[in-house]
Amino acid sequence: MSFPTTSWRPSTPSCRCADPRMRRSEFERAVEDEFGAAYGAVVTADLGLDALGGRTAAAAIAAGVDPREVWVALCAATDVPPERRYGVGRLEPRS
Rank of each mutant, 00 (worst) to 15 (best):
77 A>G: 10
17 C>L: 09
80 V>F: 02
75 C>K: 04
57 A>W: 00
77 A>K: 00
28 E>S: 13
23 R>N: 05
47 L>H: 02
36 G>S: 10
61 I>D: 04
14 S>Y: 02
33 D>L: 12
74 L>A: 06
16 R>D: 03
89 G>Y: 07
72 V>I: 11
49 L>K: 00
48 G>H: 01
66 D>I: 08
2 S>A: 12
2 S>L: 15
6 T>R: 10
18 A>T: 11
38 A>I: 14
29 R>N: 07
76 A>H: 00
34 E>K: 14
46 D>A: 13
78 T>C: 12
22 M>V: 08
31 V>Y: 03
45 A>R: 14
77 A>T: 00
4 P>W: 03
60 A>P: 01
5 T>R: 15
18 A>D: 14
71 W>L: 09
62 A>K: 04
18 A>Y: 05
76 A>G: 02
53 G>W: 01
95 S>N: 05
53 G>F: 02
59 A>G: 12
67 P>L: 08
91 L>E: 08
20 P>Q: 12
24 R>K: 08
7 S>Y: 11
17 C>R: 02
39 Y>I: 02
44 T>S: 15
40 G>M: 11
34 E>Y: 10
94 R>E: 06
72 V>K: 00
48 G>F: 00
75 C>M: 14
15 C>D: 15
37 A>M: 07
59 A>V: 03
87 G>Y: 14
51 A>W: 00
89 G>D: 03
7 S>H: 15
48 G>S: 11
73 A>G: 01
30 A>W: 01
28 E>D: 09
74 L>Q: 05
15 C>V: 11
61 I>T: 07
1 M>N: 09
78 T>K: 15
30 A>K: 05
64 G>H: 14
2 S>C: 04
12 T>D: 12
64 G>S: 06
9 R>A: 12
15 C>F: 10
85 R>K: 07
27 F>H: 08
59 A>L: 04
11 S>T: 13
63 A>E: 09
58 A>K: 09
67 P>H: 15
59 A>I: 01
1 M>Y: 09
85 R>W: 13
47 L>C: 04
39 Y>P: 01
28 E>I: 13
35 F>Y: 12
76 A>P: 01
22 M>H: 14
17 C>M: 13
52 L>A: 00
72 V>F: 00
69 E>A: 13
32 E>S: 15
33 D>Y: 04
45 A>T: 13
1 M>F: 09
58 A>H: 08
74 L>H: 03
94 R>F: 13
69 E>G: 06
93 P>T: 06
62 A>F: 06
52 L>C: 05
13 P>I: 11
49 L>A: 01
74 L>P: 01
61 I>N: 08
21 R>W: 12
89 G>Q: 07
68 R>T: 04
68 R>F: 10
90 R>I: 11
41 A>M: 06
70 V>C: 08
10 P>N: 13
60 A>V: 00
91 L>K: 11
41 A>E: 15
30 A>E: 12
66 D>Y: 07
75 C>I: 12
31 V>E: 08
41 A>P: 06
82 P>Q: 08
28 E>Y: 03
45 A>Q: 08
44 T>A: 15
94 R>Q: 06
1 M>H: 06
26 E>C: 04
24 R>E: 02
80 V>G: 10
30 A>T: 03
9 R>N: 09
81 P>T: 04
20 P>I: 04
83 E>M: 06
56 T>Y: 01
49 L>H: 00
6 T>G: 14
47 L>N: 01
3 F>W: 12
27 F>P: 03
10 P>K: 05
